[in-house]
Amino acid sequence: MSEALHFAEHRLQETALLIMAGVYAVRLIWLMRFKAGKERQAPTGLPGTTKGKGIIYSWANIFMPWSMESARKHVLMWFQFGIFHMGVTAAIALSVIIPYAPEVLEITLITTIFQVVIVAAFIVGIMRIIRRISIPVLRAISSPDDYFSLILLTVWFFFAAFSVPNRWQEGETFLLTYFWLTAFFLVYVPFSKISHYLYYPFTRYYLGKTMGFRGVFPLRGTRRG
């Protein structure tokens, strides 16, 4: 293994992770400095609905496509979402597995699973880019960061898919590019929309708390009469 690849797999990743953690911490402190809302009134709604249940429901909501009309009516989109995020998880896991537990990738089944998931995510990424460019409403709401983040992840999937077997002996180009992209991704995340996963627990927590307290969550949506 070249020194360049060793550096990219270790020192570069560690530095990028530290930067990301630092910026995240600043971001969280910033968010927590805003005052929290308070509900003074007595709770409303059915007794099965409480703040706590609302929060848990809100967090779990994304895993229950039937619970949200926008997902229920567009299940395919929901599956795309699932695949894309599984791809992200797999590609991030890869950046830890390769330097610290490369033996895991000697198991063919595991490398196959990783490659299938990441390639599927890559295909979804391409579909998402086309969708974002071709649908007027998505074009209207997209900032340069929206396009860049999506393209960045899709390209990253591409190199990750080829890096899964970890065959540096056969050439380091894909691995090097993958690790440099991972490092860039880690540093760029807090500055971009990709940081949404940092906010996700907060936004869903507050929505769940409010809606749970008011008897709206767990949602008793459309029911047959």
Partner: peptide, 18 residues
Amino acid sequence: LNRQIVGSLVACVHCGNC
């Protein structure tokens, strides 16, 4: 601005589900 509103302001990913 409160924490709930700020959360809503920073979290949009422009997915278009809305």
